[in-house]
Computed example of a mutant assay.
Amino acid sequence: MPAPNTRQVTITEIAREAGVSVPTVSRVVNGRDDVSAATREKVEALLRHHGYRVQRAPRRSRAFLIDLVFDDLDSPWAVEIIRGVEDVAHAAGAGTVVSAVHGRTDSAEAWLQNLHRRASDGVLLVTSQLQEDLGPALRESSVPLVVVDPAGQPPLDAPSVGATNWAGGMAAAAHLVQLGHRRVAHVGGPSRLLCSRARLDGHRAGLEAAGLVLDPGLVREGDFRQASGLRAAQELLDLADPPTAVFAASDQMALGVYEAVRRHGLRVPEDLSVVGFDDLELATWASPPLTTVRQPLAEMGGTAARTLLELADGREVPHPRVELATTLVVRDSTAPPRSTTLSHHK
């Protein structure tokens, strides 16, 4: 064992030396019983060696309060996640504090200060920016944490809840291929996000299963919002050989595709079939109602909340990553392609 260190070590350093996760060290430090005897002995030996006192005080009393944190709250799917969290929290007698950090470091730091003042039972993160800005601070905290639909591999060693994005993308492509479409475009979310890449990969796999290849010229990147769907679809419809169908990786971008079709003097689905992703309430009110891949957002929020409450009660979570199934919901925005090309209608 290395020579003792005169400075106060952090639990991050202890975790690295012990070869375990930071939350595991935190559980040992806080006297939690959901750690194996061998791991506890190794961690406690290092804590003693470095002069880090192990607190054996009983776990603090429950505040019956959950912190739910988003990057932004201006997306309709955020409301669905809040609804799922609220249902579970209410049934457990807990309140919910909803915050948005807007991707700004100062907002994230202010939120962290407020979190410590509230002494919440735990945190649900529906964000990637906060993880980048305050990852070290959260690692040092003993507050339970669950990530909802992480944009990539969560840098925080925490349980996460997501959806089967790849399977959803494959189902969308397979549906369009079965209708007879061969030139199927993709309007995706930001490529830096794992969920965006998974939906695109699923789309590609759905085409390949039918012996087709995704044309790179039919792929555009958006940001999940309507304006980006509009821009992408305008570019696609202006091609010499435009697509006969589009799979948009969000319902909001799909509505942007609708607008591009309208501006080109065309119609959905007669001239262009459109599939979205999310199955937000607005999908049923679109004209025509939107065929889409249902992402169980409320269920994701509820599952994450139940997981967080289990952690707050000191129980171990058996599955660190949970993915809920997506399902294709067929409505009126998809149909077999016309025998003529869109270029004849311009």
Rank of each mutant, 00 (worst) to 15 (best):
A3I: 08
A3K: 11
N5W: 07
E13Q: 15
A15W: 02
A18S: 12
P23A: 12
T24P: 02
R27I: 02
V28K: 10
G31N: 13
V35W: 07
R40S: 05
V43L: 08
H49W: 06
Y52K: 12
R53A: 14
V54W: 02
Q55I: 13
R60Y: 02
R60Q: 08
L65D: 07
I66D: 00
I66G: 00
D67G: 04
D72K: 10
R83G: 03
R83F: 01
E86G: 03
E86A: 12
A91R: 13
A92Q: 08
V97W: 11
V98P: 04
V98R: 08
S99D: 09
A100H: 12
H102M: 10
R104S: 08
A110Y: 02
W111P: 04
W111Y: 15
L112I: 15
Q113L: 15
Q113M: 14
H116C: 03
R117K: 12
R118K: 14
D121L: 07
D121C: 05
G122Q: 05
V123E: 00
T127K: 07
T127S: 14
T127M: 03
L130Q: 06
L130Y: 14
D133Y: 15
L134T: 05
S142G: 15
P144Y: 01
L145R: 15
V146K: 05
V147N: 01
G152L: 11
G152F: 12
V161C: 11
A167T: 13
A167P: 03
G169Q: 07
A171V: 02
A173T: 07
A174Y: 01
V177N: 07
G180L: 03
R183D: 09
R183H: 13
V187E: 00
P190S: 04
S191D: 13
S191V: 15
R192Q: 15
L193K: 14
L200Q: 05
L200A: 10
D201Q: 15
G202C: 08
G206K: 03
L207W: 10
E208I: 05
A209R: 14
A210C: 02
G211R: 11
L212R: 11
L218S: 07
R220Q: 14
R225W: 08
G229Y: 03
L230T: 10
L230W: 12
R231N: 12
A232N: 11
A233I: 01
E235V: 11
P242N: 07
V246P: 00
F247S: 02
A248E: 00
D251P: 00
D251T: 01
Q252N: 06
M253A: 04
A254I: 04
G256L: 06
A260T: 02
V261L: 04
R262L: 14
L272I: 05
S273E: 07
D279R: 08
E281L: 08
W285D: 10
A286Q: 05
T291Q: 04
R294T: 02
R294Y: 00
E299R: 13
E299W: 01
T303M: 06
T307F: 02
E310I: 00
L311T: 04
G314S: 09
E316W: 03
V317Q: 13
P318Q: 09
H319V: 14
V322H: 12
E323P: 01
A325V: 11
T327G: 10
L328P: 07
D332G: 06
S333N: 06
T334P: 05
A335D: 08
A335Q: 08
R338V: 02
S339Q: 15
S339W: 09
S343E: 12
